[in-house]
């Protein structure tokens, strides 16, 4: 089974109607999400704002280090 995390920027829906900022259309975001699922992207940045800022933030927040953290699963708890 695959699990995809969508990291979206502002989307033009009811949720963001009070925010006067550039927003992506729901249709374009939906399309980008299914594109991401089809090509097997684990983390999907479905709009221009997310692509520019989100991807950079993900990098800075240690996206690249995830594999090495996940590898710690094989470590055993130390017994007192």
């Amino acid at each position: 089974m695959t699990v995809h995390a969508v990291l979206a920027g502002p989307v033009d829906t009811e949720m963001s109607r009070d925010l006067d900022i550039p927003k992506a259309s729901p249709e374009s975001v939906a399309r980008a999400i299914f594109d991401g699922v089809e090509i097997g992207d684990e983390d999907i940045f479905p709009d221009p704002m997310a692509q520019v800022h989100g991807a950079e933030l993900a990098q800075r927040c240690g996206q690249g280090a995830r594999a090495s953290v996940a590898a710690l699963v094989d470590a055993q708890p130390v017994k007192p």
Partner: peptide, 23 residues
């Protein structure tokens, strides 16, 4: 149901996961 289909889960979230929007 998802296991039977070897399916996919899509969790829609936000870039605020990485950068908090104080609003």
């Amino acid at each position: 149901l998802l296991t039977r289909a070897r399916g996919a889960i899509v969790n829609v979230g936000s870039v605020t996961a990485f950068a908090s929007l104080p609003l």
